[in-house]
């Protein structure tokens, strides 16, 4: 193909990628490298607040007031701070304090658990801990359950398949916030699961009361939510498994397990890699169950910190820094998969 026609062919996708992916990303990086606020000065002010029935109350305080320019608009400060926001967001200072702090070492185990306790007391690192737990906790099960469902549906009779496919992908159809809420409501006091356990004579059980159970529930939810995605891709993949090698294997006396292990799974390998990549990216951005369960003291995520910083600290620049940390985290996690795919491509050439 001529160079010119090649360029013409790729131009639309290059332009849309630049517009929709590169530019927003560059925008986030730009935000994260700056700090912005409206200049304030402390002024002694009497603020009047309304009561009712004609009453009001006066409150006199030194309060920050915006510094206004000649047009009456606030004077904006916009300054370049380099990596400051990212260093602040990642709480490098807090981590450094912990690592350099003097401590008595009595046993290796005690040392490690003490270090773990201190590090996870720092917001970012505790969020990162659960984000990684969630990512690695869900991925293998999503693959396994997705494959199991795909094999099951593949063997089902023609008549049942449509219904089974529909039922299996339901969790993916429901909006994550709604399904998170549904799961959350299952575990409240007096809700279905708590009442069931009590009725079975196991006593009262509080799922949302400690770290282990709440994390287990969220990870289980994550598996339930993402498995249909693996299922639908693997089910499609199963339809393309060539019949010849399967029949050859049967003639050679291979068991069902051996056929799966040595014929079907190798055939599905590229799909499994794709699912892993996409699910890791998705899982690392876990947000809805954290928001809905509301127990960020037990389970927090990097994505939730972005949201919290933006909506409660009103700090778009630091929120952008958290977003960059999320991107960096995803890239680091994907390096092994990407390297593997690259090598694969290279050998095929």
């Amino acid at each position: 193909m001529k160079r010119k026609s090649f360029l013409l062919f790729v131009a639309p996708s290059v332009v849309s990628m630049l517009l929709l992916i590169a530019m927003p990303l560059a925008g986030v990086v730009y935000l994260a490298l700056h700090q912005s606020y409206v200049k304030t000065e402390l002024v002694e002010l009497t603020t009047e607040v309304p009561l009712f029935g004609g009453l009001k109350r006066q409150v006199t305080r030194t309060v920050p007031q915006p510094v206004l320019d000649e047009n009456g608009r606030g004077v904006k400060v916009w300054k370049f701070v380099g990596a400051d926001n990212i260093v602040q967001a990642a709480e490098v200072e807090g981590l450094d304090e912990i690592l350099s702090g003097a401590r008595e070492v009595t046993s290796l185990r005690g040392f490690i658990s003490e270090l773990h306790r201190e590090i996870t007391n720092v917001d970012f690192w505790s969020a990162l801990e659960f984000t990684l737990l969630y990512t690695f906790g869900t991925t293998p099960f999503v693959l396994l359950i997705g494959l199991g469902l795909a094999l099951g549906v593949d063997r089902a009779s023609e008549r049942l398949r449509g219904t089974m496919v529909f039922v299996s992908i339901l969790p993916m159809i429901v909006t994550p916030v709604v399904s998170s809420l549904a799961v959350y409501w299952l575990f409240l006091d007096g809700a279905v699961i708590a009442s069931l356990i009590e009725a079975l004579g196991f006593g009262r059980f509080y799922f949302l009361a400690d770290q282990l159970t709440i994390r287990t529930v969220i990870v289980a939810y994550g598996i339930w939510w993402a498995a249909p995605f693996a299922f639908i891709i693997l089910y499609a993949g199963l339809q393309t498994v060539p019949r010849d090698p399967l029949e050859a294997a049967m003639i050679d006396g291979a068991s069902a397990w051996q056929r799966l292990r040595y014929v079907v799974i190798p055939h599905l390998m590229p799909l499994l890699a794709v699912i892993t990549v996409i699910h890791v990216m998705d899982a690392y951005r876990v947000f809805e169950p954290i928001l809905v369960f509301g127990a960020s003291v037990f389970a927090n995520s990097v994505q939730y910190l972005t949201y919290y910083t933006l909506s409660y600290e009103d700090n778009a620049n630091k929120a952008a820094a958290y977003a960059i940390l999320t991107v960096i985290g995803v890239v680091i996690l994907l390096i092994p998969v990407l390297v593997h795919t690259y090598r694969d491509q290279a050998t095929r050439r």
Binding site: Y184, D189, G190, Y206, F207, A209, G294
Partner: peptide
């Protein structure tokens, strides 16, 4: 309070009251 309280917002507390918990 209910040990689950670290997961209850004001809507959750409203339900606790309404359900007589």
């Amino acid at each position: 309070m209910s040990p689950n309280s670290m997961s209850l917002d004001f809507g959750g507390v409203k339900r606790q009251l309404q359900q007589g918990d």
